[in-house]
């Protein structure tokens, strides 16, 4: 025998199931009066610093069918590159920016949509700058454990080319799956759960 590390095991994940919207966005699915508003619907207010953008997209299964029962959460730095979190010790984040958003995929067309700001750059662990990015977390019926990925920005080609994470993607064609395409102030990123266009998902 040796000494015990006294570590616990992480609670196993289970699928969010078909009714995740009841729990996390009840107003969205017409359960009204329990909460005033659904959490994560407003990331910005009129005083938030930075360039206003929208991030939108859809989630496709391996049969190219759009998921209409999924949910996406995003987490990102503010315009100066600081996170609104007690673990952020490099500086103080914009108090008018939550950095966190939550959006169900629409029951009609499966679109998710966030009104946010373009994040500043944050450093990788070795001090190199990462390209600006938004972290995504995706859950749905049929997904046993939430999927992490990132959205980078199509108009940041130089920063993307030097990004420490994107640089590690061995199959270069797959880098495109993490790049949100800009049109005006709207960035679009489609998530493909499997198939030839499968998104690069992260084990963080």
């Amino acid at each position: 025998m040796v000494q015990d590390l006294h570590r616990l095991k992480e609670t196993p994940s289970q699928t969010a199931g078909p009714y995740v919207h009841i729990g996390l966005t009840p107003n969205f699915c017409d359960i009204r009066g329990v909460y005033e508003t659904d959490l994560g619907t407003a990331m910005v207010n009129e005083r938030t610093l930075g360039e206003r953008i929208s991030l939108r997209g859809r989630i496709f299964d391996g049969g190219e069918t759009v998921l209409r029962d999924g949910m996406v959460e995003i987490w990102q730095a503010d315009a100066a590159g600081f996170h609104n979190s007690p673990s952020e010790l490099r500086g103080t984040a914009d108090p008018n920016f939550t950095g966190w958003g939550r959006c169900p995929t629409s029951g009609e067309d499966g679109i998710f949509h966030f009104d946010t700001i373009k994040p500043g750059r944050v450093p990788y662990k070795d001090g190199r700058w990462m390209a600006p990015h938004i972290t995504l977390w995706i859950v749905a019926r049929g997904i046993n454990i939430g999927l992490h990925t990132r959205a980078y920005f199509s108009d940041e080609a130089d920063a993307n080319a030097a990004d420490p994470l994107l640089s590690r993607i061995e199959h270069r064609a797959r880098v495109e799956t993490m790049i949100a395409q800009r049109e005006g102030n709207i960035y679009t990123i489609d998530i493909h759960l499997q198939g030839p266009k499968e998104t690069v998902f992260l084990d963080i």
Partner: peptide, 9 residues
């Protein structure tokens, strides 16, 4: 449902 919704890579 996991069959078409599971990443393969």
């Amino acid at each position: 449902t996991s069959i078409l919704r599971s990443p393969q890579r």
